[in-house]
Amino acid sequence: MKVHLPESLDALWDLLDQHPQAGIMAGGTDLLVSLRAGKQHLPTVICLERLAPLQTIEPLDQTLRIGAGVTLTRILENSLVHTHLPLLHKSVASLGSPLVRNMATLGGNICTASPAGDTLPALYVLGAKLSLASAKGRRILPLESFIQGPGKTALAKGEILDSVIIPFPAGFGVQHFEKLGQRNALAISVVSFAALIRTQDNLVQRARFAWGSVGPTIVRSPQAEKALEGNPLSLEALLRVADLARAAVEPITDVRASADYRRRVAGNMVLRLAAL
């Protein structure tokens, strides 16, 4: 296997052009696992780690642009993330372990497009947009349209994800993330749940929910969100939302948990909002 470490985007475009079969590697924490398991065979791997433009975190107009190659550890250490995107912070902190986070990137978590990707529910409710770059230029896509199925994305040949643009959720007083794995670290989500809630006079004005690991991609439920709006964050109101959540998810049974359990918990997690 040949490994390339381009140091500029131009060099990257050339390499992508010369090696259309090449795999792209950021932190390698997904890619190398799949190579070892023999799930894919790559003649060539092109690494993104030396590309400076992918390594920056910069604020811009009530948004934060995070380079796709920024490691999760750097995201956790960034004070803007801490202050303005606590939801993202919580979800990143739940991913893997310190060692994994030292290598893993935000771009990698998105491009892997796993239904269990732990940053995804947060990025969905935050309304993240993706900047995709190629030799031909750039395009911006909402995250929801980028991810098309388990392991499937809208990335075109010769294209990479270069950064993630995340709006600050102004006025959302409740920013909640919960992950249930089979243990408290180094765990693939069995069910995860992200919520953003804006209240006024103790009534919910706007709610955004997303669930992980309970469908082929992240699950949203506009019905559940609507059902909460205009209500207080009471157990009674949340019980109705929970039912809608259970109706919205499409979980599977695997070695970690049964579909039935996942469905039940996807609803139950909503009730936690009553305890905040």
Partner: peptide, 11 residues
Amino acid sequence: LSTYILPTSLD
């Protein structure tokens, strides 16, 4: 060891 679950220090 991704499916056979050992406790970690956080567990």
